[in-house]
Amino acid sequence: MSATTEEKIRTPYDAKHVAIVDTGRTVWALYIPDPEQACDPQAVADNICHPKYADVEIVATVERFYKKEGAHFSGWVVAGNGGNSDGIPNKRQAMKSLRLLIQDRFGRAGQ
Results as ranks from 00 to 15, higher is better:
Ala3Phe: 14
Ile9Gln: 12
Thr11Pro: 05
Tyr13Ala: 05
Ala15Trp: 02
Lys16Phe: 06
Ile20Ala: 10
Asp22Phe: 05
Thr23Lys: 07
Thr26Gln: 13
Val27Asp: 05
Trp28Leu: 15
Tyr31Met: 02
Ile32Gly: 09
Pro33Cys: 01
Asp34His: 01
Asp34Pro: 02
Glu36Leu: 13
Glu36Lys: 14
Glu36Ala: 14
Ala38Asn: 04
Asp40Leu: 04
Pro41Trp: 03
Ala43Ile: 00
Val44Glu: 04
Val44Asp: 02
Asp46Thr: 00
Cys49Gln: 15
His50Ile: 09
His50Met: 13
Pro51Ala: 12
Lys52Gly: 04
Lys52Phe: 08
Asp55Pro: 03
Asp55Met: 10
Glu57Lys: 03
Thr61Cys: 08
Val62Asp: 09
Arg64Lys: 11
Phe65Ala: 00
Lys68His: 15
Glu69Trp: 08
Glu69Ser: 07
Ala71Lys: 01
His72Met: 13
Gly75Leu: 07
Trp76His: 08
Val77Trp: 04
Val78Tyr: 04
Ala79Met: 13
Ala79Gln: 12
Ala79Asp: 09
Gly83Arg: 14
Gly83Glu: 14
Ile88Trp: 07
Ile88Asn: 08
Ile88Gln: 08
Asn90Lys: 07
Asn90Gln: 11
Met95Asp: 00
Lys96Ile: 15
Ser97Pro: 06
Leu98Gln: 13
Arg99Ser: 15
Leu101Gly: 00
Gln103Met: 07
Asp104Pro: 01
Arg105Met: 15
Arg105Ser: 12
Phe106Trp: 06
Arg108Asn: 13
Arg108Trp: 12
Arg108Pro: 06
Ala109Phe: 05
Ala109Cys: 03
